[in-house]
Amino acid sequence: MKAIRVHAHGGPEQLRLEDIPLPEPAPDEIRLRTDVIGVNYVDVYHRTGSMPLPLPYTPGMDAVGTVDAVGADVTELAVGQRVAYAEAPGAYAEFVTVPVRLAVAVPPELDPRLAAAAMLQGMTAHYLAHDAHPVARGETVVVHAAAGGVGQFLVQFAKRAGARVVGTVSSDAKAALAAELGVDTVVRYDRDDFTAAVRAATDGAGAHAVYDSVGRRTFHASLDALRPRGSLVLFGQASGKTEPIDPFLLAQKGSLKLTWPTLTHHVLTREEFTTRAEAVFAGLLDGTLRARVDAEFALADAAAAHAHLERRASLGKVLLHHP
């Protein structure tokens, strides 16, 4: 079968299409013939080595496909079903084996492209808004990169909960998209003082929570944007790793809470995984959530997909397909 392989950390040119053996599912796994493959910024972190995986490897953490084979112990899904999965490696391939606990049936009426566009990023936004800091009605929260893949879903979950959202973006096009999604105050974090904007939007009180996927560039300003006992939820480092801090700084700034959660630790059981995935699918079907596909590439053009993502011009999910 064809798969993208990475043999050394580096630029997009490290993504190479190769022939590798067809994998066989373990007793608790299914094998999918992938139809639509998600491209996520974590794939860039893996490729560059900022969050390294053992070399060589096949990139990709989520996809939608058709069950091609099932392991001996699998009873939850069957051959021929359309399934989505997340949080298992190896998606940039014609076939992938996945633990059944990380896979869920896609409703027949849901466009598989939208399911793929919403799977990993929608589930990430779900645990951020419901667990990492549960958004409550009347709160003010800050969503950095509000027009990004996770940011778009996070804005929608926060608005559904009844929060005021301050969203930061890096371009006028992204500002327009953030406003369309319902962001109450849109700030260009690349040129404007978003901390001042948060203070102005809250009569000086500060935000209840900041969701930060940018990292080094915004970290200290995010802390400064919080009210006493506010929460800074880190979940990415697009601008680089944050500098170490003395934990006492959190006390000095108002008994703040700081956390870096991951999706892995919020889908520890099949029930937890399916609950989150089905909540995202239900939102797509009833119109309370929107998924936006930004660009689509052939599997063989995975390097171009990564280059597109790294230009930070995308306004939604980047997808891969193969014949």
Rank of each mutant, 00 (worst) to 15 (best):
A303R: 06
L289T: 07
A303D: 15
L268P: 09
D246Q: 10
L250I: 07
F273D: 02
T218S: 05
A279E: 08
G230A: 03
T262S: 15
G254S: 12
D301A: 06
A304R: 04
L258M: 08
L250E: 09
E272Q: 14
Q252V: 13
L284S: 11
H220P: 04
A238W: 08
A277Q: 08
A282V: 03
L256I: 06
D286S: 03
G254T: 09
F248M: 07
P228K: 02
D294V: 07
V267R: 01
D246V: 03
T288V: 03
D301E: 13
A238G: 03
S222I: 01
E272N: 10
R229S: 08
R229Y: 15
G236R: 00
V267H: 04
L249I: 12
R227N: 02
A221Y: 10
E272H: 13
L285F: 14
F281W: 02
G283K: 04
L289Q: 06
E271H: 14
H266C: 01
D224E: 02
A221I: 02
A300F: 13
E296Y: 13
S231R: 04
L299W: 14
A298Y: 12
G283L: 06
P261R: 01
T269S: 07
R216A: 02
D246I: 00
K241D: 09
S222G: 05
G287A: 06
T264I: 01
F273M: 00
P261V: 02
L258H: 09
E271W: 14
L285K: 03
H266G: 01
D286G: 05
K241N: 07
D246T: 03
A300I: 02
R270C: 08
A300K: 05
L289F: 15
H265N: 05
G240K: 06
F219H: 00
A304W: 11
R217A: 14
D301N: 07
R292Q: 12
K241A: 10
T275D: 14
I245V: 08
L285P: 13
